[in-house]
Write a protein that binds this DNA or RNA. Structure first.
Length: 363
DNA sequence: ATGTAC
């Protein structure tokens, strides 16, 4: 078996099998499985695999560049608490959530960023309308307060339909039509491989710009109700779905955060327990990575069946959030314990701050 | 993960 390190302790066989099947591929060199790992398609969520000369769209996934932004602010926590319901309502007016996007294009100077006609077509269609939209599922906006009562704004979102369309396009190309299940990739020096890498990198920038735009809108809305601003120069941005070249290998991270020594990151838990702001240790055994969250304890359907609305309501006491049947599969009880996950990755990241939610926005 | 069509 090739060199690998597993940081998860409660893995099911299906997830472990999926990881080993990926690692067995000829082009796989080394692997790591983060403490929040669970079953995905082709590669588990929370897996990191280094390959030699091959890049696989299915190992990056559909939401290319999905990730986190966080910024601390000069807002006063008590004022935010008092205005929380107003801010909550204002954000839902300013940021499209779920499947929706903006009515008009969001300005973005992206002419200089390389891309192929695949991306150009999507931009000409409605790509720029998607900038500043949140999406659905586990994507969220969190306004919270840390151990020093400092207010943070944290965003989890990705490359929306643009990234999804790019990913689908290249997965079909790689798999000859059957995109999802196999370990189909491109030689990185092939023409198609170069095209995928170019569009992948564009999508990483697009996802980052999407989070910036959401952050800008959230802070603008907060300023209608409170005094303060973001400390923009200290903005953190980390994506957890990408592939990047390092020392001649292609490192695929699918639901895993890049965590080089000194690199800051954000590890979200759930809508009640909030998020950790961390700094990487650059652990080579973990392929310079950490978890991307707490990980799900229950699948979405299972969560909808098992968790009662009463329990969900009670567990969210004191936090302004959308608490109804549409967000039940995002209830705190659907996720693993965040502190257990953090304990398993103490050799991967150092904790800088703990942010507890005041307001949570979901699609 | 994504809206609306291989």
């Amino acid at each position: 078996m090739k060199s690998h390190k597993i940081y998860a302790t409660d893995l099911d066989n299906a997830t472990l099998d999926q990881f080993y099947r990926a690692l067995e591929q000829d082009f796989s060199v080394r692997g790591a499985l983060m403490p929040d790992a669970h079953l995905g398609y082709s590669l588990p969520i929370g897996a990191v695999i280094a390959t030699s000369g091959v890049i696989l769209p299915s190992w990056v996934g559909y939401d290319i560049g999905c990730g986190m932004c966080a910024v601390s602010t000069s807002f006063d926590g008590d004022q935010v608490r008092r205005q929380a319901k107003h801010i909550f309502t204002a954000i839902y007016r300013a940021v499209p959530v779920g499947f929706s996007h903006n009515r008009s294009d969001t300005p973005w100077d992206c002419q200089h960023i390389p891309r192929t006609p695949v991306v150009d077509r999507l931009l000409a269609k409605n790509g720029l309308k998607q900038l500043g939209s949140l999406g659905s599922g586990n994507h969220f906006i969190e306004i919270g307060s840390d151990e020093s009562q400092r207010v943070w704004v944290i965003i989890h979102s990705g490359s929306r339909n643009l990234g999804h369309s790019v990913a689908s396009h290249y997965m079909k190309l790689a798999g000859g039509g059957k995109a999802r299940e196999g370990h189909f990739g491109f030689a990185v020096s092939s023409e198609t491989g170069c095209r995928y890498i170019k569009d992948l990198n564009f999508c990483l920038q697009f996802a980052r710009q999407n989070r910036f735009e959401i952050l800008r809108r959230v802070v603008t809305e907060m300023q209608q109700h409170c005094d303060g601003d973001a400390r923009w120069s200290e903005l953190i941005n980390r994506n957890h779905n990408h592939a990047e070249e390092k020392d001649g290998l292609w490192i695929h991270r699918k639901g895993a955060t890049h965590a080089e020594a000194g690199m800051r990151g954000v590890i979200p838990g759930n809508m009640r327990d909030g998020s950790y702001i961390v700094v990487g240790k650059g652990n080579p055994q973990a392929l310079w990575s950490s978890s991307h969250g707490a990980g799900r304890a229950l699948g979405r359907k299972q969560a909808q069946r098992q968790i009662s609305m009463t329990h969900f309501n009670d567990s969210m006491d004191g936090i302004v959030a959308r608490i109804d049947r549409t967000t039940l599969d995002e209830a705190p009880a659907a996720y693993k314990n965040l502190d257990t996950v953090m304990a398993r990755q103490k050799d991967l990241v150092t904790i800088l701050h703990r942010v507890h939610p005041l307001i949570n926005i979901k699609g």
